[in-house]
Write a protein that binds this DNA or RNA. Structure first.
Length: 585
RNA sequence: GGUCUGGUAGUUCAGUUGGUUAGAAUGCCGGCCUGUCACGCCGGAGGUCGCGAGUUCGAGUCUCGUCCAGACCGCCA
């Protein structure tokens, strides 16, 4: 037996017990006559004490221990003469009688401490050492806790967890597939699932009316701080439900997690905000409602004068930044530069300072009188001391630019409180979005999303106007998940494929199995999928999902620890009838 | 595919206008120290300044290319 206790559990009540502990050497403090060693495992840290007078040989041994040596010790729990109130085990220490080095360790390339000296780079390369750190471990423990609570809640709601295959079929819609060559079926490929979408719909047809799975999904697209090539979804589907039924069940899940994991009671129903409203008021389909700063439409009011930029704009709008009228020229220039960055793409920024004395100073004083500006300020509900920031141009683009500016200002004004959570449902998404490149409609959610009943007629006349039975759960400006009520009628599904530019043959080839299944009594159904990594990182107060994934990949999709992806042997290629081609320069 | 930022000791970083032997902290090694807990004090070792060209009497510093890392845009139903 290597241990009788963990390194985190001994207390004063264990005084005088003979115990054995196993763990890693966190640190040694050699004071000459006596030496202290901190031993660490998953559960905590316990202090070992060695006294030169009591056992000089043992003490010498302890002095030679290096960081991260794996040791086993036997000894007696004793009360410390000088206690450490900062440690849970700080009242006791182990008077060691026997020490056993189970394994030595090289000096680790960075310190294994909460406040490590290692950068991202080196910590990713030695991820197994990084995972020893309490801060990283806590993230994985949070992830575990949340996974357990999800299962607990959904199980209580009669959901059953069903595994779906990972080697499936490539489909043209949506993200790029990761593909896997098949040895037994020459020149053919599996694809890894972007989500278990069709399988969960087939499970509904099979009568498993409440399904869920915490499952890996794969998308071969460029990565971000919140996007990995493989990521985990809480994937769910229900039969005999309408949109509100699904929202009820999963709002319940969200509240359960807030309560059990964060200890937060969210009062009342989540806001349900139509997509069009989210865009108009926040310039985003995932508005951050931790703070107000709504976008105000100035189009009508500001077009009256001779300012060409505004007069030629489809849309004029802006935000009111609380108490920012004192911004210097330099700060305003910086904001202008911010919106002009290619990533944002605005042409310029108009400001109006509502001075404390009630007067106005703006970058468009030439064109607008003090009275004009007062009317603007009133529309913005501005008070003296506030600053109006205004953009103009194409409606859609301008709103999204103001949305970006809104977040930037919130950040500057410290309005993004990581301990505050404001969830909402964004509903009534458009069914389709126009793609300029291919000159055809794309499914905004996916091709199985049902249109709103009252909008079905528009599918023939004005497809871009059709709203979908689709919904996203958004928390603090992060899209946590989304779903839809599915089409369960073969005729409507064919119509949808047609709108998406699929020929009958193409649709059959790609989704024939699903269309076939629909012929055998498909129940009305719908579902939702949550980005588990994002949800955990949100609860952890982190900006990157990498910190809640045990072994994440970098932004080029590489695992720098195992160095993948990598080339494979010629024999492997031959067996698969594959040949590699050198990329052109 | 694009924009931006970074790459200097094991690690995290500083390095002025291009100018002598490239610094600090921490870690590591050695010595001293009997109540430390980020122990303290003294000493020491440790560098392909990412890589390759170029400009120059002289490059960590300037130019070009390249590789790597990070953030973002495109992309991601």
């Amino acid at each position: 037996m290597y241990r009788t206790h963990t390194c985190g559990e001994l207390r004063l009540i264990n005084k005088n017990e003979n115990v054995s502990l196993s763990g890693w050497v966190q640190r040694t403090r050699n004071l000459g006559g006596m030496t202290f060693v901190d031993i660490r495992d998953r559960y905590g840290i316990t202090q070992l004490v060695f006294d030169m007078d009591t056992n000089s040989e043992l003490c010498e041994q302890a002095r030679k221990l290096g960081r991260e040596y794996v040791i086993q010790v036997k000894g007696n729990v004793s009360e410390r003469s000088s206690k450490n109130s900062k440690m849970p085990t700080g009242d006791i220490e182990i008077l060691v009688t026997e020490i056993n080095i189970l394994n030595k360790s090289d000096v680790p390339p960075f310190t294994i401490e909460d406040d490590t000296d290692g950068g991202d780079d080196i910590r990713m390369k030695y991820r197994y050492l990084d995972l020893r750190r309490a801060t990283v471990r806590k993230n994985l423990e949070l992830r575990h806790r949340m996974g357990q609570e999800v299962r607990k809640y959904l199980d209580a709601q009669k959901f059953i967890e069903v595994e779906t295959p990972v080697l499936i079929k490539s489909t043209p819609e949506g993200a790029r597939d990761f593909v896997v060559p098949s040895r037994m079926n020459k020149n053919q490929f599996y694809a890894l699932p972007q989500s278990p979408q069709v399988f969960k719909q087939l499970l509904m047809i099979a009568g498993y009316d409440r399904y869920f799975q915490i499952v890996k999904c794969f998308r071969d697209e460029d990565l971000r701080a919140d996007r990995q090539p493989e990521f985990t979804q809480i994937d769910c589907e229900m039969a005999f439900v309408e949109q509100q039924d699904i929202i009820n069940v999963f709002e319940g899940l969200a509240k359960h997690l807030f309560k059990e994991v964060k200890g937060l009671d969210i009062e009342g129903d989540f806001i349900q905000m139509p997509y069009s409203e989210a865009i108009a008021n926040y310039g985003s389909d995932k508005p951050d409602l931790r703070f107000e700063m709504k976008i105000v439409d100035l189009t009508e009011l500001a077009k009256q004068n001779d300012f060409v930029v505004f007069n030629s704009a489809e849309y004029i709008g802006g935000i009111c930044a609380d108490s920012c009228a004192s911004y210097s020229r330099k700060e305003l220039d910086k904001l202008t530069k911010f919106v002009q960055r290619p990533q944002i793409g605005a042409k310029g920024l108009v400001y109006v300072k509502y001075n404390e004395d009630g007067s106005f100073k703006s970058s468009v004083d030439k064109f607008y009188s003090q009275d004009d500006l007062k009317k603007w300020a009133d529309l913005f509900n501005a008070k003296p001391g506030d600053l109006l920031l205004i953009l103009a141009g194409d409606r859609e683009k301008t709103l999204s630019q103001i949305g970006e500016l809104r977040l930037e200002m919130a950040n500057k004004l410290n309005l993004l409180d990581k301990d505050k959570f404001v969830p909402l449902w964004v509903v009534d998404f458009p069914l389709l979005e126009w793609d300029d490149d291919s000159s055809c409609f794309h499914a905004m959610h996916h091709p199985f999303t049902s249109p709103k009943k009252e909008d079905i007629e528009l599918m023939d006349t004005d497809p871009g106007k059709v709203r979908a039975n689709a919904y996203d759960l958004v928390i603090n400006g992060v899209e946590i998940g989304g779903g839809s009520i599915r089409i369960f009628n073969d005729e409507l599904q064919q119509k949808m494929f047609k709108l998406l530019g699929f020929s009958k043959e193409e649709a059959d080839a790609q989704f024939g199995f699903l269309m076939n299944a629909f012929k055998y009594g498909a129940p009305p159904h719908g579902g939702v999928a949550f980005g588990f990594d994002r949800w955990v990182s949100l609860f952890a107060g982190l900006d990157s999902i990498r910190d809640v994934i045990a072994f994440p990949k970098n932004n080029s999709g590489r695992d720098v620890m195992i160095d993948s992806p990598s080339e494979i042997a010629k024999e492997q290629l031959d067996e698969l009838f594959l040949k590699t081609i050198k990329p052109k320069e």
